[in-house]
Design a protein around this nucleic acid. Structure first.
Lengths: 321, 321
DNA sequence: TTGAAAGCGTTACCAC
DNA sequence: GTGGTAACGCTTTCAA
């Protein structure tokens, strides 16, 4: 494989000139540049990443801690990962996976060995050790979620507002009693911020009587959940669902029990709402936008070395078309 | 951050000794090793990955091309990715994501810049350009699926046998007419090998009358599919499903139409079969085992530099418990 | 059992 | 506008 010296020789210039042509960090005469680029093409030269990283002190790689899940949520995560990779590639960076199960140690190892220039941490807890580790390490980083006690830039949907929006949508339809179906991640410690935020937004919003219950994402789990909330409320007419994986069983069971008086408003990505048994009005989780924002917030730190800011997305209601 | 020279100084040895202690590639006296390790701990030394990669000519990183999907299949992919990462970490390697949408060019770039020591390519077509690129590049690699015209080691489930097994299971129950629900990926070019293999195994197996149709993974899509196959067959009593995302709508619609005379046998991971409306006998896709095998096949090439062999998994029927 | 030193292939500073 | 060259931090051969 050709090295930079080979290209330099072929083009009749020095190695540094080749480097500058390729990086564009120096003015090079048009003729010289053309000769160099021709030599690069002729020899099929591709710079050695390790050598570049060693010399320049940056790897052009970002680390990504993505959670591992077994249900419909996996599709969301993938969307996220994919979008982040898109942004990264657009800036000539690569993406290294960091094991979410390995916690702070994995982060420390990857950072200390200088494998990455920055990190995106998904799926943070309310008190997230990894976020603390990240902050203390000093690498550029962005977290998804709203962990407490960190100054790292966060990106998240405003889940309190999202739940409130769902309630007001149901209230406007004249709902008599509304239940929030929360994911098991609500219960901690450590709990997930988004679950807790949704509960507070749900509870605080004006409207009909309400109840909140956690649900297992299985058919029997949803069946049990339904009977619980039916006890909690005089009359159940609306369900706010913050638990994608439970949606197919919920819709199936409501239909089976002929409960078409119950309106379901999920808080979920539109891609998931579209795959359901019946199209539903929903509060959208703008996954791609959030991922893009997270990635761009990271790159802002990598390039301008400027301070990055958090971004809390406003929820929007998407009507079933 | 401490460098190897700092550790060497602190331990009163040379840098090479530190390197050897850490790599274990040379016998070191117990006392020296202890002193070195102590210094490593004291200074919090972590070797610089780029420097190591440059000097040793290997990155301890493997590349992974994982497909991007929007439905239930995403959970399978994640399981795969997660298992591969587990194996990689067990061998002190990291995993770099390679954009599946960027085709051969992405592979070439990653390989030519020596970002990775080997590659795992998922979701190959029957005639896969990327597999060809990979083979020609000469890097250690493993592909999932059975692309034609490559000598790269392949890992896959024997989908022909899997479909045949599903048919024989239905035949044993006295099924009168069986339909295969194929994924849209059946139609090419380029088509997916697994879809084509399933069709041939399905068709060739002895048993009741059969029909094969492709299905869109939506409720209307499945509705349309059901009416097509009902025309094809005198009497539909069994469905072999090679299309995870279509399972929830299929089960929902069969129930809605009170077709409990129809038995559904999916070819899918057990994790997915378990999340369904009703537990189903299914032909298992052993995702974790396949991922593990793929990763280990790659590492066999990385370490022994020996020739790796393909692995076609025998299908097994898993009964709903 | 250990050390010295020559690379590995870039980048970027300092000259010209 | 271009070239020389010293890093970057490690691995590994050669010598002792």
């Amino acid at each position: 494989m050709a090295r930079i010296a080979d290209v330099a020789r072929a083009a009749g210039v020095s190695a540094s000139t080749v480097s500058y042509v390729l990086s564009g960090r120096r003015r090079i005469s048009a003729e010289t540049r053309e000769r160099v680029l021709q030599a690069v093409r002729d020899l099929g030269y591709t710079p050695n990443a390790a050598a570049g990283a060693l010399a320049a002190g940056r790897t052009r790689t970002i680390g990504l801690v993505a959670p591992h899940c077994e249900d419909l949520t996996a599709a969301i995560i993938q969307q996220f990962v994919h979008t982040i990779m898109e942004v990264a590639r657009g800036r000539d960076h690569d993406v290294l996976l960091i094991d979410p199960a390995a916690g702070s140690a994995a982060l420390r190892r990857v950072i200390d060995s200088h494998l990455v220039d920055g990190v995106i941490l998904m799926d943070t807890d309310e008190t997230d050790q990894r976020a603390a580790t990240l902050e203390e390490s000093g690498v550029p980083a962005v977290v998804l979620g709203t962990p407490e006690g960190t100054d790292l830039p966060c990106v998240d949907l405003d889940f309190a507002a999202a739940a409130a929006l769902a309630v007001s949508h149901l209230a406007a339809q004249g709902s008599a009693g509304v239940a929030l179906m929360s994911p098991p991640e609500l219960v901690g410690p450590p709990g997930k911020g988004y679950a807790r935020h949704a509960v507070s937004g749900f509870t605080a919003a004006p409207g009909p009587p309400r109840t909140v219950r956690v649900c297992e994402p299985t058919w029997p789990g949803v069946e049990a959940w339904l009977s619980s909330v039916s006890h909690d409320l005089d009359r159940l007419t609306g369900v706010v669902v913050q638990h994608e994986a439970a949606l197919p069983p919920l819709l199936g069971l409501l239909r089976r029990h002929h409960r078409d008086d119950v309106t379901v408003v999920p808080i979920c990505p539109s891609a998931i709402a579209r795959q359901l048994e019946s199209p539903l009005d929903h509060v959208e989780i703008p996954v791609a936008e959030m991922a893009r924002t997270a990635a761009e917030t990271l790159f802002r730190q990598l390039t301008h070395a400027g301070h990055a800011t958090s971004h809390l997305f406003e929820p929007h209601l998407v009507r079933a078309s």
